Amino acid sequence: MTTRSQRAVVVDDSRFMRELIGDVLRDGGVRVVAEAADGHEAVAAVERHRPDVVTMDVEMPRMNGIEAVERIMDSRPTPVLMLSAYTEDGADVTFDALDRGAVDFFAKPGGEVSMGVSRLKEQLVEKVRSVATADLSRQTNRRPITTTAQTARTGVRASRATSAPSPTTAYVDNPTLVIGSSTGGPSAVEAVLRNLPLDADFRVIVVQHMPDAFTGRFADRLDGRSEYDVREATDGARIGGGEALVANGGTNLLVSHYNSGRLRVSLTDDDFDKGVQPSVDVTMSSVAKKVDDPLVGVVLTGMGSDGAEGIQALHRAGAYTVAESEESSVIFGMPKRAIATGCIDAVHRLEDIAADVLDNVREEN
């Protein structure tokens, strides 16, 4: 039985880029059913051709890629892959597009150097194919309520300050939480972290498959949308309770030292033959070796098997382990592989994960 080739609409204001991306996708077995030069044409092409996936440029005349994503999600929801400049400004607009419903992004190396797409054609085809399989019904509830990090952080703190006091909850001392994710992960990580109260006092490490130009901006967004002090990891960085690190793109994060509730990390260029940097497996395994206080490991949405070995290492170290369920995963790849190891203690929909994590670190009466 033959599998139907996936159908794509390619959107870019540069004719050269449209042709280049189209050729790469066709060579990879993806059928390009239409091309569009701006957001207006993109929305119309999606309505007309009903593709499986859209590759979307950001900066275009008449209607940019962010507005086009929003229109597509309102009229005919379709998985969208953003093609983003490999810059910090590119990261900002990419996260805006993810907020509006885009599934994932592909960072064009060297900013707008178009030939970089050709050099990375295998990765682009793989990314397009994975995004095409995303279940957008699972993406809808992941969109954040707020639109800017500062507004979100102010709102979180104001709501805590003005709400009626709740009974004091006692938590175990010095818990560490490691979260791994890939496709669909940025909003999933945020959904977990923003529901963890500061008094749980976690040391949090986030490993999200993402290039280095984007992980700093991702850390800033998490910092603004949660009660935790979140920053991008640097070599030798230390964190204690109420603090979080986001692993850098292009390196692997290792826990080099742990003592009295504070951990120190080191960064390495070694990919440990994992094929991805940062690798969830590498970081989780390192945490399992170094941290002897309570541990929790969580694997969220993503393509592939990264995290499966790391979850086994955490399980052997006595950690409580959680995987996102198929019901809520945008891509049920990484969680499925983790569950298959037999080392996952609980499987939950995304919206229930934070509560379960907290239940596991509460002091028993």
Rank of each mutant, 00 (worst) to 15 (best):
T3K: 13
R4P: 11
Q6T: 15
V11F: 03
R15V: 15
M17Q: 15
E19S: 14
L20V: 08
G22W: 04
R26V: 06
G28K: 00
V30I: 13
V32S: 05
E35M: 05
A36R: 03
H40C: 06
H40E: 11
A42L: 09
A44W: 10
E47S: 14
R48S: 07
H49Q: 15
P51D: 02
V54N: 00
V54S: 00
M56D: 12
P61I: 12
N64Y: 04
R71T: 10
M73G: 03
S84E: 12
D92G: 08
V93A: 05
V93K: 01
D99L: 02
G101T: 04
P109N: 05
K127W: 02
D135M: 12
R142H: 07
T148M: 01
T148Q: 03
Q150W: 05
G155C: 06
G155T: 12
V156G: 03
A158L: 15
S166T: 11
A170G: 00
Y171G: 08
D173I: 05
V178T: 10
I179Y: 09
I179E: 03
G185M: 03
G185A: 07
S187D: 09
R194I: 04
N195F: 00
L196M: 08
P197W: 06
P197F: 09
A200W: 03
A200T: 09
D201M: 14
D201G: 12
M210H: 07
P211M: 08
T215F: 10
G216I: 06
D220Y: 01
D220M: 09
L222Y: 05
R225F: 04
D229V: 14
V230S: 01
A233M: 09
G236K: 13
R238Q: 11
G240N: 12
G241K: 01
G242T: 11
V246W: 06
V246Y: 08
A247E: 10
N248I: 13
S256F: 08
Y258C: 14
V265R: 04
S266C: 09
L267P: 11
D273I: 03
G275K: 04
V276H: 09
Q277S: 11
S279G: 11
V282C: 06
T283A: 14
M284P: 01
S285G: 13
S286Q: 12
K289E: 14
K290M: 07
D292S: 10
D293F: 09
D293P: 10
L295C: 07
G297W: 05
G302M: 00
D306N: 13
G310V: 00
I311S: 05
A317H: 11
A317I: 04
Y320D: 06
Y320P: 01
S325W: 06
E327A: 15
S328Q: 10
F332H: 11
G333I: 01
M334D: 05
M334L: 08
R337N: 13
I339F: 11
C343D: 15
C343H: 15
H348A: 12
H348T: 04
R349K: 14
R349V: 10
L350H: 05
E351F: 12
D352I: 06
L358D: 01
R362K: 15
R362W: 01
